[in-house]
Design a protein around this nucleic acid. Structure first.
Lengths: 145, 145
DNA sequence: AATAAAACCGAGCAAAATACTTGGGATTAA
DNA sequence: TTAATCCCAAGTATTTTGCTCGGTTTTATT
């Protein structure tokens, strides 16, 4: 029941892009440094995010990445699905292409996993990058007091 | 964000014991057969469950396992914690001994993972083996109609 | 007392997943 | 033209997973 570093790092990187939204392309290197993530590794993660349409990329000097949509239009769930695959505590209750086993029709455990999946989806999809930015503001307000 | 087979199989085995609660010791072999789980592997899982006090064991001929408490007193979360470890989408929000990273005090991602953890805990701890038995009854009522 | 049914135990191990690294090539602003 | 930057495919060390194997110990039954 743990996220891999893909999801962890990926969300941090996307939050970084959200904080710089509107400032033009942000270089991968600068994200990697701020977020303390291996540049080469992050490159792979952001490639997935680009292919799935969550970020736009700009090649060449002064290039970099931007969010493809406004922060309030990107849910945490969108990011996690790209980097960790469909939300699914088990294969038999996967959001996409659930693989039912033979015993599925009488399996009560599956009902439990379904509830769990729904609850995870609910949290991840009710929360956007903008919400994170807002929370960050709040956090800083407190510390400067 | 996936359970391992330890949690999957373990819950199925515990549900099996719940269904036979009050019938005396149930042999590992019979659980393994009914639930279609490798006997040798299940032995390891149930050893964890015994050590943590969720099941009692009876050695020798006609021996086997029983739930250590009534089904309505064993939460799904109790089982999952034994087999999968503390509930923790990331190490930094682990139920037990959370390992904060350097950036923890300003990390907004952590707030997201906390909400996620709480929501997972809520589902797993609000649901007991007895609830599963009840759902099983419901399920069978429907199919026999 | 002998037997067989069961739990108990520790070690080993192959396959898969994870978390990267490496070494290039392609674009493009300056 | 050059340097900054993205793009891509492959390789790799480590860890985790999901088991198997070969025994030992305990105990009800005969």
């Amino acid at each position: 029941m743990k996220l891999s570093t893909r999801g962890e790092y990926g969300l941090r990187a996307m939050f970084d892009l959200a904080q710089h939204f509107g400032e033009g392309p942000i270089a991968l290197r600068s994200i990697a440094e701020r977020q303390d993530i291996s540049e080469n590794y992050l490159e792979q993660l952001i490639a997935s995010l680009r292919r799935s349409g969550l970020v736009d990329s700009f090649r060449g000097a002064q290039g970099g990445y931007t969010l493809a949509r406004a922060p309030d239009n990107i849910r945490i769930g969108d990011i996690i699905r790209v980097l960790e695959g469909p939300i699914a505590p088990t294969d038999c209750v996967s959001e996409r292409d659930a693989e039912l086993c033979d015993r599925a029709n009488t399996c009560v455990a599956r009902l439990v996993w379904e509830k769990l999946r729904d609850s995870i989806v609910e949290v991840l999809d009710s929360y956007t990058l903008q919400d994170m930015c807002n929370e960050f503001q709040e956090l800083n307000k407190e510390t400067t007091n």
